[in-house]
Design a protein around this nucleic acid. Structure first.
Lengths: 196, 196
DNA sequence: GTCTATAAAGCGATAGAC
DNA sequence: GTCTATCGCTTTATAGAC
């Protein structure tokens, strides 16, 4: 039986966009109240812990989305190459081809990091290790796989930063394209643009 | 004749560290007053425009440092390969081997970006174009040079994000090492980890 | 479950004495 | 040039009516 009124889950995407646009400090309760259409009383009903609980819930939802759509496929798919290509496509769509920033990165650079240290760290480590697992199934050595995965994660995050900074989403798109090319090298004996 | 009291220039490094630690919003005037040892009256004497002028002055100082130590050598040195290697070393030191974030990136991801759009964009474009100019002197084609420079910038910024996020500065150090390796390829005919 | 009113604290910024 | 006191505003959070 569908409810007409907002549920807690319905609020999360709005909160996520507000934190993306304005940052943790900048997303004030009055702004949140305005954009969700809920009074402060209702907001504190759904999130008794206030803004910190809202941000934690958003981070948890983001982590859940990546776990289902990115991390699990990378870890478990039978076709590692295909899962790598598909998840890179999904990432490109998720970040709106470079027009949407990574909230976890934004929190990491902000002093907001101190509030959510574990969630931020776990997100990137899960991503790196899932990608490294797929690369190992492609035949790469464990150490090389982790290094390569970290390289790609950095390129993606750096691409998002540059895209936002210079106002050109194509900087992110090129970073993803380069990552696809880099990861398309199938074997462990191929030359790599990295050092030990 | 050396002055004993603080000059405006002496305040800027303290402001920079405060903005790095706490972000633009988080660095309150009372915190700034405490860390600089100056009352609000003195702060407004040096920066009549308040906190926005303080942040603008910090960004200008950062840009000046990079212009002198990174951009100009990349553009003008006779030995392009040497200037690339030396400026990468300088960048590694500047960011304290991954323990110090890039304030320009942090502002870019925050909604603080809207206040300093031009300064943020110009910083990254100047860096990219200076590095691309050095790569052209190494024999790379213009389009490849810009793409390669953007690649390296993204790797550096992504490395800083990852280092801060996972609490491991070596993620940044590896990104710089990979960039050195990538840029050490001298000629335009060498294989590249990128796509057009 | 939603609202308004309000509390308590912190904010950026200003005024004016010294 | 530096200080303290204070203004006006916004913030998060709570209380209590409905």
């Amino acid at each position: 039986m569908a409810r007409l009124v907002a549920e807690r889950a319905d609020i999360l995407p709005i909160l996520a966009e507000l934190f993306r646009e304005h940052g943790y400090e900048g997303a004030s309760l009055s702004l949140i109240s305005e954009r969700t259409g809920l009074g402060k009383g209702s907001l504190y009903h759904f999130f008794p812990g206030g803004k910190e609980e809202m941000a934690a819930a958003v981070l948890e939802e983001i982590d859940g989305w990546f776990e289902r759509r990115i991390f699990a496929p990378l870890r478990n798919s039978t076709d590692a190459a295909q899962s790598i290509a598909e998840t890179l496509d999904a990432v490109e769509v998720y970040f709106a081809q470079g027009r949407r920033i990574c909230l976890v990165s934004a929190f990491a650079l902000d002093h907001t990091r101190d509030r959510f240290t574990a969630a931020i760290r776990d997100y990137f480590i899960a991503w790196r290790d899932a990608l490294a697992a797929a690369l190992q199934r492609l035949g790469h050595a464990p150490a090389i796989s982790t290094d390569l995965a970290e390289d790609v994660l950095g390129a993606i995050q750096g691409g998002l930063v540059l895209a936002r900074a210079i106002g050109d989403p194509s900087a992110f798109q090129r970073a993803v394209a380069r990552s696809k090319y880099l990861l398309a090298m199938p074997g462990p004996s191929e030359p790599r643009c990295t050092v030990e």
